[in-house]
Amino acid sequence: MSQNSSPAWGTASRVSAAVLGGYGLSYASTAFLSTFLPMARADRVAVASLLCFAVYTAAVIYVFAARSAARAWIVLLGMGILLGLATWLAGDYAVRP
């Protein structure tokens, strides 16, 4: 899509991938780590939450470094869905003490 659309469109796509996709990914990663980190429940939540800003920052940097906006979207969404799915499948494993 980046070949035949205007640069303005590409930039808008990247910006929204960074802001929305980045937040989505950091949300999914926090949920994932809160479930799977090998610690007590409160510690999992605290550590996973504190890491979310690093994930968000890395995601934004990646979005602008990626070869195309479409690629950035695919990677972010793919990773987000993967992490989200793993968390969802874990079910009540997430609330273990």
């Binding site: 950091s26 429940r41 939540v45 939450s49 504190l50 979310c52 800003f53 690093a54 997430a94 609330v95």
Partner: peptide, 22 residues
Amino acid sequence: AYTGLAIFVSLYMPAGVQTAYR
């Protein structure tokens, strides 16, 4: 910048509490 975000992390990123504490 990072610690400033961390202070209100429960507001900015509710995912952990939503997942592990429902």
